[in-house]
Design a protein around this nucleic acid. Sequence first.
DNA 1: CGGCATCTTGAGTTGGGTCAATGGTCGTGG
DNA 2: CCACGACCATTGACCCAACTCAAGATGCCG
Lengths: 205, 205
Amino acid sequence: MPIGTSPALLKELDELVYVRRRLKSGITLYHTGSHCHSLYVVKTGFIKTENLHDDGRTQITGFYMAGEMFGFDGIADEAHMCTSVALEDSEVCIIPLERIENINPDLLRLQHHLYKLMSREIVRDHTMMMLLGSMHGEERLAAFMLNLSHRFHVRGYSPYHLVLRMKREEIGSYLGMKVETVSRIFTKIPGPGAVRCTSKRYYDS
Amino acid sequence: MPIGTSPALLKELDELVYVRRRLKSGITLYHTGSHCHSLYVVKTGFIKTENLHDDGRTQITGFYMAGEMFGFDGIADEAHMCTSVALEDSEVCIIPLERIENINPDLLRLQHHLYKLMSREIVRDHTMMMLLGSMHGEERLAAFMLNLSHRFHVRGYSPYHLVLRMKREEIGSYLGMKVETVSRIFTKIPGPGAVRCTSKRYYDS
DNA sequence: CGGCATCTTGAGTTGGGTCAATGGTCGTGG
DNA sequence: CCACGACCATTGACCCAACTCAAGATGCCG
């Protein structure tokens, strides 16, 4: 589920970066419907993207951590199709779309990387469709934790000791379950090493 | 959920097309894991893409009809991440990836179109995540039919009289429900005008 | 006409939703 | 420093939508 970027790519991307922006926890970066002029890369912190259904239901479509790129949904119609919110104090790099459109032909390789990143997002989404469409609660949560573990590991953090920056409700929204269900599974599944507390949410796997 | 292509774009895409390929109903175009060298556009017929879970469970991730492009998932790692199968006798255009990578700078607009198409696939996937994560059976089926209706309409067919080329089981796989549930909902929901038969599966909405 | 695949329908079970109560954590202000 | 309130997480009791299992029914094709 991650949208990884290789260090090399990150460096190249840096050249495209226009500005950075700091976001306090809970602040919205962009809203559904607003004009889309940029893509974003998480520099520090944690970002969620969510879709709002008319009747108030929401579905979280992604959690993004340092090094991961998001905002691809806005390219189609030049308007964001979801809302993105910081889960904790965060910093994002802003990459103006015009720079991508008028990209220097020399940077063709970068162009190609962008295709790959978008493709990876699509693969991730298909994985989520599989998860939502044919896995049980326990499996969903397990897959989610394993995925997080992997992403932390890649970034040099312990894959065994996860700090969940999102609330139970948000996990539920992402995995298509209610808070209570998430909570019950957390209680049931974990082996002896499990630790949990609110706000700073630790978890061993 | 459609990956629409404007007529203008289709024309430009034609220049990139290497060959076409006919597929008998039930034939697999590519398998998960096989090397990915192309994208595809449905010329006639109906194509499904599905993900295979280790334990035999499958999740259909998309249905594609005339004019819609698919195969974006293969770009990330140069290997297909799903399997695509013809639901009926079909014809697809094959667009070699190398042509896209070495695209003529004059066709920058085409480049841009490709980004849009991929972005649209991402938006579609997020819609599916919303559907799978927070809608009831009835709502899912309704959304599915409305979407199909819309896509047929765009292509000049009646939006009221749909010909479903996929089986109940496939609809179920796509929408995250079992065959029986799909069948029951079909029985329950439809107004008077509903017609159904096997193989040629008609449906009024 | 018979065989096979698909679809429908029924009966019973269950995973997860709903509602409601409890308890923990944190931030704020007296 | 402690009391209060807001927010979050957990837990229990109950319920229902969707799953499972098991027949039939229907349509397709050789």
